[in-house]
């Protein structure tokens, strides 16, 4: 059976800067894959390549066997890849439910008659409320999203990603900036979503979170993949430890 996501020898150069160099890995359906690495390793760049925000310099990204190259972000989103952001980006001035409605409209933005039809239908409202309930923020539906605390904004971003009915969601530092209890809620949510069949690719700096969530981890450093494997193996991998802490004798 083919992989859900196949990253095949991709490189991304910004002028002379090699943000990613010949990175390959695959992701299976139903998996939670961790993506870790020190700052500047190229993790978020990789997310931006998968979601079509930047074109790759070389290499290919295949999703469900389909080559994603040349596709713009909206097309990639429509194919069922949702994402959240390292620094949250809700549609600040809009209500929580409207945020979710926007992503629910993904199938309505293509044809003319589709896009001119009314968005507030009983069916779409029901679908949006269901997703909000799913991530536990149904009580905030009519609040302006900018007024939510950070933890709930992150839940909202997940709700927005779920509205795309994705088979894969990319989470960029979901635990970043959260208190312990907020973090626990979020981890629980990610697990549940995964349990319902959505694969998750997660960038995270908080090692306990990564070790809890992921059965497999890919480590990037300076744009290249330096390790891949289960958490215990990664924890004891010499190259990984060096990437984070420096070579022994350096200090």
């Amino acid at each position: 059976m083919e992989h859900l996501l196949e990253i095949d020898a991709i490189s991304k150069h910004f002028g002379g800067l090699k943000a990613l160099e010949n990175v390959s890995f695959t992701m299976d359906r139903g998996e939670i894959l961790g993506l870790i690495g020190p700052n500047g390793a190229g993790k978020t760049t990789l997310f931006n390549l998968i979601t079509g925000r930047y074109p790759v310099t070389s290499g290919t990204i295949r999703y469900n066997g389909k080559d994603l190259s040349g596709m713009g972000p909206s097309q990639v989103a429509a194919m069922g890849i949702g994402r959240t952001f390292q620094i949250v980006r809700p549609f600040a001035g809009l209500t929580v439910i409207t945020n979710v409605m926007i992503a629910l409209g993904v199938s309505h933005y293509a044809g003319f008659w589709n896009s001119v039809s009314r968005y507030r239908t009983p069916a779409s409202l029901k679908a949006a409320r269901k997703i909000l309930a799913r991530v536990g923020i149904a009580g905030y539906a009519q609040q302006k999203s900018e007024n939510l605390p950070l933890g709930l904004k992150k839940h909202l971003e997940i709700a927005r990603a779920l509205a795309l009915r994705p088979s894969l969601i990319l989470l960029d530092e979901p635990a970043g900036g959260l208190r312990k209890e907020e973090m626990d809620r979020l981890i629980g949510l990610v697990r549940e979503i995964n349990g319902e069949g959505t694969s998750v690719l997660v960038i995270e700096h908080n090692m306990p979170v990564v070790m809890q969530l992921c059965k497999r981890i890919v480590v990037l450093d300076h744009g290249t993949k330096i390790a891949e494997g289960p958490p215990e193996a990664i924890r004891n991998n010499r190259q990984v430890v060096e990437a984070y802490l420096g070579r022994t004798g350096d200090a």
């Binding site: 979601t51 925000r53 713009g72 972000p73 909206s74 989103a77 429509a78 949702g82 994402r83 952001f85 980006r89 809700p90 549609f91 600040a92 001035g93 809009l94 926007i102 992503a103 409209g105 993904v106 933005y109 927005r160 509205a163 795309l164």
Partner: peptide
């Protein structure tokens, strides 16, 4: 509201 988030939401 946010062009990047809009694109990622399929717009």
């Amino acid at each position: 509201e946010d062009e990047t988030a809009a694109e990622m939401s399929g717009v």
